[in-house]
Nucleic acid binder design. Sequence first.
DNA 1: GTGAATGCAAAACCTTTGCAACTGG
DNA 2: CCAGTTGCAAAGGTTTTGCATTCAC
Lengths: 152, 152
Amino acid sequence: MKKDLPSATSDQDLAHKLASSGMRMTAQREHVYHTLLQQTDHPTADEVYLRAKSAMPELSMATVYNTLDALVKCGLIKQVNVERTASRYCSNMNEHCHFFCEECGSIHDVDFKKDKGELPLKLPRNLVPTQVDISLRGRCADPLKCPNRNRN
Amino acid sequence: MKKDLPSATSDQDLAHKLASSGMRMTAQREHVYHTLLQQTDHPTADEVYLRAKSAMPELSMATVYNTLDALVKCGLIKQVNVERTASRYCSNMNEHCHFFCEECGSIHDVDFKKDKGELPLKLPRNLVPTQVDISLRGRCADPLKCPNRNRN
DNA sequence: GTGAATGCAAAACCTTTGCAACTGG
DNA sequence: CCAGTTGCAAAGGTTTTGCATTCAC
């Protein structure tokens, strides 16, 4: 039995997902999406651009932004806003949240426990959420990057 | 019996909170903080600047950013990142989360239920959060602004 | 007195836009 | 064929920086 994964499992699937939101499949979109799938460290638009451009030199920044918006719209990636300056993008569409290390700037994925119930919110009737983002801030202990790995 | 409020209840208190993070009290910081306390609609740095400047014409944008960072550092305000373009600031330090309306751009505070338990997260031991942000996205039904108030 | 904070203007970023050329369905 | 997409370059908006001056402690 095939599981319905939140990511596009083939280019045809990607084309379908784009089409169902009234958008077209292009070589650039396919390439940017694959770049994001390989780059799991929550890159900024610029980082996606640089990496994708190396294999497709004519790619433009405008197209990267266009594509990122398109992929967000059809639910294939998430936009992650943790810093003041630049948005980041995440191709992991399993339910999870983000831990942002204020020391080294890295972002770690944190999974939910399986028995996750509803969030205990007093949500007024006139607010209808389509998406929930949970982000944590603090210090990680990444042995390679985080300068606080030996403190406390 | 006096409750220990998360906001600074007096200028002396503000001075103390700044000092305990190694920062100084200035007329600008006091003024910007009071502006934020009155402007409860999650203003951007620019909106804080414009409003604060009207009562303190010599105030500069650089000082507003400096002050916002200082207030965030000593825990008197929160930085809210929901959009790609500009950060917003929140002086409500009671535990709550934010609902961002993708239609009209407004941000609504949403309270937690009183019996709120722990978040069901599989948090690795090396990640120590100091802050949790929960943000929701969707459509509100603000009768004045939201163009979707009559749809569905 | 001394280091921190300010104001100003310029610089540095990040993101969006306009438009002619191109292309996918 | 035609609306959607691209690439380029320029514009727009937000945030940061450098530096001389001022101010808080």
